[in-house]
Write a protein that binds this DNA or RNA. Structure first.
Lengths: 331, 331
DNA sequence: CTGTTAGCGCCTTCAT
DNA sequence: ATGAAGGCGCTAACAG
């Protein structure tokens, strides 16, 4: 593809390569005459500068890595979109990596990305500590944690206020008379799952209500199989995310129960499809696109060495009441 | 982050840089003694080779570009997952770019990716011709078109048999007694939309049935607003993809119609949520993950210069009958 | 088997 | 304002 180097341009224009470089980057004054010659040569050759060589020289690649569990989950897809839009506008590209929450995988990916000299990393991983990542951060790797923080790593992050989200949900549910709770949560190691768990238990206890809690996985299948095994129905089943809720509802209906008549079900995330689910899902909205965008913004600031006012951003969730929950009549 | 070069390793190990390079790449025999020294030095320094420098030297970056309309659409997210899984396994990374079907954007993205020396490109763009892309291909850029072919560009591709998909759907619908059709299709410029359109019209005409056809966009909103404006109801509304169908059904229900009692509605793609939609969507399944995987596979073969048996891959769609369609009783 | 050397394409002093 | 030269980190001849 029109593989030309700055050298050829220089030759064709009858100038030195430094002059070409100067007009290319406007890094120093160049006489009108030479500038025109160079521009003409560039035009005729269809020359593009090699970002690669520039990267090697300058130590910046203009690419950001993004390690996340699974792009197939709309929650992450929307986050990625927010990040990519912002980065693209700022002249950066995104290398996307699916980790399936597998720490080994995360480490491999991290090695590759670093060896490709990414300028920074967006990281949505498991919550367990990650020694390699920790080390790299200490050695200067720029990273913003997205949606999930890792214990023992002091770095920038963009998360939502999980405590608030859970309490919003509980306020509503308790207000509607629910007294007996089951919480089918996501992965135990995941930051947000833990926070929500703690908030949930604390609140339920102070209110003196009944509950059961299970850590599973953030997937449709996990919700489905857990719900299949449920012996008795509570007033409401809280789910770690919308995907789990989908699985739970499907399983429940297969067992002959009606949602919300027989049991209320709630999700978490409000991915775009939850509005169209049968029944439309009561859930907690997370500003996914904005999370991605804010994280990208923050990362770029860090890369550019700006003094940060806030090293972390905490976004607000929002309660979305739809039709998978009901008012408890008596009890 | 532990910025060490091969030079430092060489120095520390007391050997030449070529020896280091040799043990790194196993590119030539090295005595056990030196090898051990080098390995020790690498270990102690925490050295990683710079993929960047290697890329510059070898002219290969081990990264693939993927230009697609919108990762937020599960259809593409699943394709991407298939591609990324395969590529990661083969030691490649994916740079993800959302184009929003905007040709200007596509061209900008293409320029950036080329200047970053991608080894190949996965492209899901508009159907209109793209002069820059055409030129780059002629100059040796390796690309595989995914889901959509561009007129006048002779390159490799992975698509599904849209004709078959449409006919499967029509077989079923006609068999169930539907006689009056509306087709709310996606973007006019899109390859698959055009093929389906042609197949549809041809078939409906030979069967001597009634129809109307509209090109819109592949989105929920497009389906919603088009359905809102529909004056009279046909027996069935075919939709260009599942997203459009979601919008159509929602609009219909807001107008007080029931699906499928008052009108059948079908989608196309079978994204994972269509099974859970209210009502569960009758649609045409496309093997998304496999499409991405196959495309990645094909691209890598091309990059490695293998002689191809098939320059294109056509995958088979599958009719998925659920509850958004019905048997017509009389008429 | 091992070391020296010449670039890959670019930016950046340093002279002029 | 312009050019020459060095080097970013690496691989691939080429000697020895």
């Amino acid at each position: 593809m029109g593989k030309h180097s700055i050298k050829e341009v220089a030759k064709k224009a009858g100038v030195s390569i430094s002059t070409v470089s100067r007009v290319l980057n406007n890094s120093a004054p160049v006489s009108e005459k030479l500038r025109r010659k160079v521009e003409k040569a560039i035009e005729e050759l269809g020359y593009y500068p090699s970002h690669l060589a520039k990267s090697l020289r300058k130590g910046e690649t203009g690419t950001i890595g993004f390690i996340l569990p699974d792009i197939t989950n709309p929650f992450f897809a929307n986050i990625v979109r927010g990040a990519e839009d912002y980065l693209r506008n700022e002249g950066y590209n995104l290398i996307l990596c699916n980790s399936d929450q597998n720490q080994m995988q995360e480490i491999e990916l991290l090695k590759v990305l670093i060896s490709k000299n990414i300028d920074g990393l967006l990281f949505t991983g498991t919550g367990s500590s990650n020694p390699l990542l920790l080390e790299k951060i200490q050695h200067g790797l720029k990273v913003v944690f997205l949606d999930r923080i890792i214990q023992g790593i002091n770095s920038s992050y963009v998360i939502i206020d999980n405590k608030k989200g859970m309490n919003l949900l509980l306020d509503y549910l308790i207000g509607k008379g629910h007294k007996n709770f089951v919480f089918i949560n996501g992965n135990k190691e995941t930051f947000s799952a833990r926070i929500r768990y703690e908030t949930f238990v604390k609140r339920i206890r102070t209110e003196n209500l009944k509950f059961k809690h299970y850590f599973t996985e953030f997937s449709y299948e996990a919700g489905y199989s857990k719900a299949k095994k449920l012996k008795e129905l509570p007033d409401v089943i809280l789910c770690g995310n919308d995907l789990i809720a989908y699985g739970v509802i499907d399983a429940l209906e297969e067992k002959g129960y009606k949602v919300p008549e027989d049991v209320s079900v709630t999700g978490f995330d409000d991915i775009p499809f939850s509005k169209h689910f049968k029944p439309p899902l009561t859930t907690v909205y997370q500003p996914m696109y904005e999370m991605g965008k804010k994280a990208a913004e923050l990362l770029l600031k860090i890369i550019k060495g700006e003094k940060l006012i806030n090293k972390g951003v905490i976004l607000s969730p929002q309660l979305i009441i739809r039709e998978s929950t009901k008012e408890m009549v008596n009890k």
